[in-house]
Amino acid sequence: MRGEAWLFTGTALFFGAATAVYGWLSDEPAGIAALCVSFVMSALVAAFLWRQHRRGGERPEDRADAEVREAAGRRVFFPARSLYPVLTAAGSALVGLGVVQGLWLCLIGFGVLLPGVLGFAFQNLDHPE
């Protein structure tokens, strides 16, 4: 994960510098907000990848002297088919529409979104890894 972590760290640094320069030279709040959000999102991904790198150690992909056979075998777990992505997408769409149409639709959207997100998080608790 080291290569990916460096990539997103560089992206976060770029957006941080661009936000500072743009904020100094411009008074437009929309551009500053968009650059700030871009910085935060790339910094969160970078932090996650650095954490995964520390937790899992070096992968064969991170070393220049690695052999292809070192990466062989089962490495990750992919869950079975699930309807939770559809439920989460429908809940997100209802929340977005609720912001425009009214609080009642937003509350219904959160009611649909919550089981979708919880299903994503806990659907494979019995998987041994």
Rank of each mutant, 00 (worst) to 15 (best):
A71V: 00
H53D: 12
F48Y: 15
G57Y: 06
P79N: 12
E61W: 03
F122E: 01
R63C: 03
F120R: 07
R51N: 06
Y84R: 02
A90D: 05
F122I: 00
G31T: 06
Y22I: 01
G23N: 03
V95N: 01
L125H: 10
E70S: 07
D27Y: 02
A33M: 09
G111V: 15
V40A: 15
Q101D: 04
A30V: 14
P128A: 08
V117I: 13
G102D: 09
R55S: 06
A66D: 03
L94C: 13
L49W: 09
P85V: 00
P128C: 07
L114W: 07
F14G: 14
L83K: 05
L113R: 06
V117F: 05
H127S: 08
G10D: 04
P85A: 04
L94P: 02
A71F: 00
D126Y: 02
L83I: 11
F14Q: 05
G31V: 06
R55N: 07
L125K: 12
G91A: 04
L118S: 08
R54L: 14
A43V: 02
E129M: 11
W6V: 04
R63A: 12
G109A: 09
V76P: 01
G96K: 01
V37Q: 14
V99C: 03
A80E: 15
V21C: 02
V100A: 14
F15K: 02
R55D: 11
A121V: 14
Q123G: 01
R81F: 12
E129N: 09
D62K: 04
L118Y: 11
